[in-house]
Amino acid sequence: MPRKAASATPRAPAPRHRPDLSLEAAFGPGRRVCGIDEVGRGPLAGPVVAAAVVLPPEGLPPEIAALIDDSKALARRLREEIEPAIRAHALAFAIAEASAAEIDALNIHKATLLAMKRAYHALAGAAPDAALIDGKFLPDIGCEAVAVVKGDSRSQSIACASILAKVARDSEMLRLSAGHPHYGWDRNAGYPTPEHLAALSVHGVTPHHRVSFAPVARQKAITG
């Protein structure tokens, strides 16, 4: 019988492509471009947080740029280690939020755009000439803007904004957790984990919950 061909040596996975500045550079030389991203659309509690970041034309130092990625792809400890370096090397950055009450009043989509708009207008120094916005929708910020699907894995500016927003929101949820320890917000950041849902049914709705979200609305209807 013919001998079975030896299997090929497994190849190591290709290195993950890190976000770069090609989208920023596409606006042309000398343009001041900010990246904007948000964190916290899905949780049942807490604000939605957005950040805007303007990087220098050459970007971050190589040793830092090599670590930058979509915040969801980074371990919490690594995000917290990178965040001060982003602040130190960015030309400008700002963080803003829309509260749980604003989310309930406007809906999460409009509140997210509001947080992005607030972050953009909170940037120090000269206003950016253009903005790269993560996702499909654009806030009304008054400058040239481009929506970039999966922008936090493509644009270094957006990825940096993602990291700043995530670290800021996690810190806020840790602070809120101190006053409401039953819900595990220091661990789940307000997302609908089994722990959070179980605590909601036992301890009820807090002022920091989003009552327009179905699990919270159901519990609110039960307890009043």
Score class of each variant (00 low, 15 high):
L106A: 07
G151I: 08
S177V: 07
H203Q: 02
T206N: 06
C143P: 07
R3F: 12
L21N: 13
R16Q: 14
I103P: 04
K4D: 07
I158S: 00
L200F: 01
P194L: 10
A126Q: 14
L113P: 03
E195K: 03
D37I: 02
E97A: 13
A8F: 08
V33T: 05
L106Q: 12
R31I: 05
P84S: 08
K4Q: 14
W185I: 00
A100I: 06
A214M: 11
G30I: 07
V205K: 04
D140R: 15
R87W: 11
K220Q: 14
V39T: 02
C34D: 08
A51P: 02
E58R: 14
L176R: 11
V202D: 13
A5D: 13
L78G: 00
H109A: 10
S7C: 12
A26C: 11
P47A: 10
I133Q: 04
A111G: 09
D70T: 07
R3S: 15
C34G: 03
L174M: 13
L132I: 09
Q156G: 07
R118H: 10
G35A: 07
Q156R: 13
H196I: 01
C34I: 03
L197V: 10
A126V: 13
V148C: 05
K136L: 13
K166F: 00
C160F: 04
D69V: 02
H17W: 04
S162I: 02
A90Y: 02
G190D: 04
A98D: 08
R32D: 02
P13R: 11
S212R: 04
A161F: 00
E24T: 13
V49P: 05
G204F: 08
A90E: 05
V149R: 12
R154C: 11
L200Q: 00
H182Q: 15
E97D: 13
V211E: 07
T9I: 13
P61S: 04
A85C: 14
G204Y: 04
A221N: 09
L55I: 10
H196L: 07
S177A: 15
D140Y: 08
A73Y: 03
Y120T: 09
D170Q: 12
P56E: 14
V53H: 03
A122T: 04
A75Y: 07
A92Y: 04
L113N: 02
V48G: 01
M116K: 11
A6C: 12
L60S: 05
A8N: 14
A178F: 10
H109W: 11
A147D: 03
S71D: 01
V33L: 02
D186M: 01
P13W: 05
T112E: 04
P19K: 09
L74F: 01
N107H: 09
L138R: 12
K136T: 09
A124S: 12
G28M: 05
L23M: 14
D104V: 01
P47I: 03
V146F: 00
V211R: 11
A189R: 06
V49D: 06
H17R: 15
K4C: 06
H180L: 09
T193F: 03
C143Q: 15
A26D: 11
R31V: 12
